[in-house]
Design a protein around this nucleic acid. Sequence first.
DNA 1: GGCGGTATCAGCCAAAAGGCTGAGAGACCA
DNA 2: TGGTCTCTCAGCCTTTTGGCTGATACCGCC
Lengths: 208, 208
Amino acid sequence: MSAITVVLVDDHLVVRSGLKALLGTQPDIEVVAEASSGEEALTAVEGHAPDVVVMDLAMGPGMDGIEAIRKLRERNRKQAVLVFTTYDSDADIVRAVDAGAMGYLLKDAAPEEIFAAVRGAVQGKSVMSPPVASRLFQQLRNPDEVLTPREAELLSLLTEGLSNRELGQRLFISEATVKTHLAHIYAKLGVETRAAAIATAIRREGMR
Amino acid sequence: MSAITVVLVDDHLVVRSGLKALLGTQPDIEVVAEASSGEEALTAVEGHAPDVVVMDLAMGPGMDGIEAIRKLRERNRKQAVLVFTTYDSDADIVRAVDAGAMGYLLKDAAPEEIFAAVRGAVQGKSVMSPPVASRLFQQLRNPDEVLTPREAELLSLLTEGLSNRELGQRLFISEATVKTHLAHIYAKLGVETRAAAIATAIRREGMR
DNA sequence: GGCGGTATCAGCCAAAAGGCTGAGAGACCA
DNA sequence: TGGTCTCTCAGCCTTTTGGCTGATACCGCC
C-alpha cells in the first residue's frame, strides 16, 4: 500500500514547517504540497488529489478555512479535511463540521494524536481533540443554549459595537425586536449585559 | 566562532518543531533547548545559558510570555529575548518592549527575517517585523492615542464585561472616576460606547 | 388541527451608561 | 515655581439598556 498523501494549509510558514517535520517521521504519511491561503489550497488539492487536507481556519485576509472546506466539497473530490487550529470555539467547530470537516485538532495536540487523525481520516473515521469533543457533547446535552440563526446573526453584529437602534436598522426590524432577541441571547450565553455578551461571543464563540 | 545558542519557548509543539527545522538549516545557529511554558523557560535558560531566547507570548494557563521575559531579566542574565507571536497588538508590543524584549516577530515572518533577528539580537540589534514597527511608529506620532497604565488596566477589566460599579469595586475607585477613565478611553480608541470599546480592545489591542 | 419553535412588535418602568463641566492632589519636569 | 500629566471625585441631565408582560404570525410536525 502506498503512503497517505497530505496537503498542508496554514498561513504560517513555521507551522507548515513543523507539521511537515512531524508527519515526515511517519513512513506511511507523505506531505505532497503546501498552501498558505484558501485560494492556494484549492489549486494545490486540484493538482495533487491528496488523501487528506490539514487545514488551519484563521488565514489572514481572503478566503478563510471554513470557506475553503466548503469549496473543496463543492468540487466533490474524495479527500478528507482535517481542521488544525489554535482555538476551540463553539461557532468554529459547528461551522467546520457543517462545512464537511472530518476531524478537528488543536495546535497543542500531541504528535500521536495528529498521526492518528490523519490515518483515521482516510478510513472515514472522525477524530477530534478531547476539548473539542467535549464541547460538541456539551452542545448536544444543552440544546437550549444553542442560538437560533437570527440570534447568531444579531450577536455577530453586536460584537461590532452597534447600538440597539443600529442593530434594528441593519436587520430591518424594530428596536423592540432587537431587545427581545438580546434578552434570549443573554439567557443562552449566561450573561446579563451586552458588554459581557460581546466578551463571551468574541472569546468563546470565536466571533472575531 | 561557535554557533549562536537558542532556546525555544512556545506551547505548541508544531511551532517549536517548525522553528527548530528552520533554524536548523543555518550552520551558525543551534537550538539547545525547548520549553512549552513560562516556568519551563526559566529553568531551560538557567540550565543552558543561551545567547537568544525565542518566546511566544500566549502560552495557555500559568505564566505568560511577558511575565517570563520580566523574570528572565530579573535574574539578570545576558541573553536576548525575541518575541515570536501571532498577533501584533499595541498592548502586547508595548508591554513586551517594556519587559525587555530585544525584538518582535510575527509568526508569518519569512525565514530570512527570523534568521536576521536571531543574529541581530546577539549583537544588541533590535529587529521587528514591519507591521510591528509601523505600529510603534504610529504610537510615537500619535501619543494622544496611547492609553495610560490606569486606562489600560481599566480597559482590560472592561473586556470581561464588568459594569461601572464592578469596575470601581475592583479598582478601589468611585464610579465617577470609572466614568472619567472610560470617557478618555473612548476618545483614544475612537469609539462612543463601551460595546465598541470592548470590540476594539479585544480585536485590535489583543486583550483576550 | 393543535403544538412548539421562531420571529416579529408594544408599552412600561428601573437601572445603567454617557456627555458635560468643574475641580483637587500628587508626580514629574523644565 | 509653574506647567503638564495622571488619577481622583461630584453633580446634572439625556440616552440607552435591560426586565417584564403580553401579543400576533408563520412554519413544520405529529
